[in-house]
């Protein structure tokens, strides 16, 4: 008997097991000719293999060794990112914010999960959690402490709540004792969390 579901929101008609919900929606859309299953594989591959925090880490390391690049990145990140071919979905408009001894930057999206995909990949589960979204704006220092980040006295916290299509990337401070390291080695110190602000770069000698 068709049309007996009109009182229910369509999502409640899906199977209870999440993996089966995906299967149901994929089956419907593939049968309708609206989804190419190979395109789904290609999207997953792109974010599992090619687009991830290593891209942001490369930018940070280069900014640490090249003052002109650092200035360009902080002044007009979109231009730099486009020239390097790192633009794309969820990174169409990027602002890079620099940590200093006076200011520590922390990025959150309280309303959903906005995140610079082309530079950091798909956000980790904690970034999308209710707890991070709720607390990062009100008690950023408590959240930082949970992540093991202790700020020096005199450092203020600047939280960026990504409420529009501007995506924020933190440029962390270059670790002490790294003067002898080249760009590639420095990139190995740049963690994903250090570019969100919930972490610091690895100390010299502790490369990933």
């Amino acid at each position: 008997m068709p049309h007996d579901h009109h009182d229910q929101s369509p999502h409640s008609l899906l199977p209870s097991e999440p993996a089966l919900r995906v299967k149901a929606l994929e089956t419907i859309l593939v049968e309708k000719g609206l989804i190419d299953p190979a395109a789904l594989d290609a999207i997953i591959d792109l974010y599992e293999r090619d687009i991830g925090p290593q891209i942001g880490a490369g930018l940070v390391a280069r900014a640490w060794v090249d003052p002109h690049f650092r200035t360009a990145l902080l002044t007009d990140a979109d231009k730099v990112i486009t020239e390097l071919g790192h633009g794309g979905r969820q990174g169409e408009h990027v602002v890079v914010v620099e940590n200093t001894p006076e200011t520590h930057n922390l990025v959150v999206c309280t309303l959903c999960s906005c995140y610079p995909w082309p530079l950091l990949g798909i956000p980790p589960g904690w970034y999308k959690s209710d707890s991070y979204r709720a607390r990062a704006v009100r008690e950023p220092r408590a959240v930082l402490a949970e992540f093991g980040v202790a700020l020096a006295a005199g450092t203020s916290v600047r939280v960026w709540d990504s409420t529009a299509e501007i995506r924020y990337l933190v440029l962390p401070m270059r670790p002490e004792g790294s003067a002898h390291m080249d760009e590639a080695a420095l990139a190995g110190l740049v963690t994903r969390d250090s570019m969100i602000g919930t972490g610091l770069p690895l100390p010299v000698g502790a490369d990933k």
């Binding site: 792109l46 633009g87 169409e92 408009h93 082309p118």
Partner: peptide
């Protein structure tokens, strides 16, 4: 995905 959809 690499071209995205700018909102500006």
């Amino acid at each position: 995905l690499r071209s995205g959809g700018p909102s500006a």
